[in-house]
Measured scan of single mutants.
Amino acid sequence: AEKTGIVNVSSSLNVREGASTSSKVIGSLSGNTKVTIVGEEGAFYKIEYKGSHSYVAKEYIKDIKDE
């Protein structure tokens, strides 16, 4: 089941290729951006990003809701 969340950062949140802080950064999301969460892996959520799937750190996503 998909969930949505809100990016909870003051500046921007790195979007990564994989579920690791050493993964390549492929983009960023600004605070209060709504994201669609399709899964989770460790400390990361797998999200829909620009037509494919990428990862963001869970600690920076708030207001998780089931869609």
Rank of each mutant, 00 (worst) to 15 (best):
A43E: 14
K24M: 09
K3Q: 07
I64V: 14
S28G: 06
E40Y: 05
E41Y: 07
Y45H: 02
V38D: 01
S54L: 06
G42T: 03
E2K: 15
F44G: 00
E17P: 02
Y45E: 00
E67Y: 10
K24V: 07
S23F: 06
Y55Q: 01
L29R: 00
T4C: 12
K24I: 07
K3E: 04
A43F: 08
S12Y: 13
Y49K: 00
Y60L: 06
Y60C: 15
E17S: 08
V56E: 00
K62C: 12
K65M: 11
V38F: 06
D63R: 09
R16A: 04
A1K: 13
K34T: 11
S28C: 14
V38M: 07
L13P: 08
K65N: 12
E67C: 14
A1E: 10
Y45K: 01
G42W: 03
K24Q: 09
V35Y: 02
D63Q: 12
G5D: 02
S30W: 09
S28E: 11
I6V: 12
G27R: 00
G5C: 07
I61K: 00
G39Q: 04
S28N: 10
E40K: 04
E40R: 03
N32T: 06
K58R: 07
H53Q: 08
E59D: 09
Y60K: 06
N32E: 09
K34E: 08
Y60P: 02
E48A: 11
G18L: 11
V38Y: 07
A57Q: 14
S23V: 02
G42M: 04
V25N: 03
S12N: 10
Y55A: 00
G39Y: 03
G42H: 04
A57V: 07
S30G: 10
K50D: 09
K46Y: 05
D63H: 10
E67D: 12
E67N: 13
N32F: 10
S11E: 12
V35N: 00
I61L: 07
V25G: 02
K50A: 10
T33R: 05
I47F: 03
G18D: 09
E59L: 09
K34S: 08
K24A: 11
F44W: 13
T33L: 07
Y49M: 02
G27F: 03
G42D: 06
F44I: 01
G31K: 14
E48P: 04
T36N: 10
K34I: 14
K46N: 02
K24H: 07
S30R: 14
I26P: 02
I61T: 01
I64C: 10
T4K: 09
I61H: 01
A1M: 14
T36V: 14
I26N: 04
T4A: 07
V56L: 04
S54Q: 07
A19I: 05
S52M: 13
S12A: 11
R16W: 15
S20V: 04
E17G: 06
N14K: 12
Y45T: 01
S10E: 13
S30H: 11
Y49A: 00
F44S: 03
E59C: 12
T36K: 13
S11A: 11
S23H: 08
V38S: 04
I6N: 04
H53T: 09
T33E: 11
Y45P: 01
A1H: 14
I37P: 00
K50M: 14
S20M: 06
V35H: 00
K46M: 12
T4N: 07
K34V: 14
E40A: 06
A19N: 04
V25K: 05
K24R: 12
F44P: 00
E59V: 10
K24Y: 05
K58C: 03
E67I: 14
V25M: 04
I37Y: 01
Y45G: 00
K58L: 03
G18P: 01
L29H: 01
D66H: 12
I47N: 00
Y60I: 03
A1R: 10
E48W: 14
N14P: 15
S20K: 05
I61Q: 01
S52D: 08
G27Q: 02
A19V: 05
K50L: 12
V15K: 00
G51S: 06
D63I: 15
K50E: 12
K34D: 03
T33I: 07
T36P: 02
I47A: 01
K62M: 13
V15R: 01
E17R: 05
L13T: 08
K62I: 15
Y55R: 00
G18C: 13
N8Q: 11
N32K: 08
T36F: 12
V25D: 02
V38L: 13
Y60V: 04
T33A: 08
S54V: 14
A1Y: 15
E17M: 06
I61C: 03
E2M: 15
K3S: 07
L13N: 03
T36C: 11
E48G: 03
A43L: 11
S22N: 12
S23N: 04
I6S: 05
L29D: 01
K50Q: 13
N32Q: 10
S30M: 14
I6T: 08
I61M: 04
T21S: 13
S11M: 10
K62T: 14
T33Y: 06
G27T: 02
E59P: 05
Y49W: 10
D63C: 15
V15I: 07
K3C: 13
V56C: 04
S22L: 10
S30Q: 14
T36L: 10
V38A: 04
D66E: 14
V25Q: 04
G18T: 13
E59T: 07
V7C: 05
I37V: 05
F44M: 04
D66N: 12
V35L: 05
S28Q: 15
V7Y: 03
K3A: 06
N14L: 15
K65C: 12
I37E: 00
G27K: 00
S23W: 03
V25F: 04
K24E: 07
K34L: 12
S12D: 09
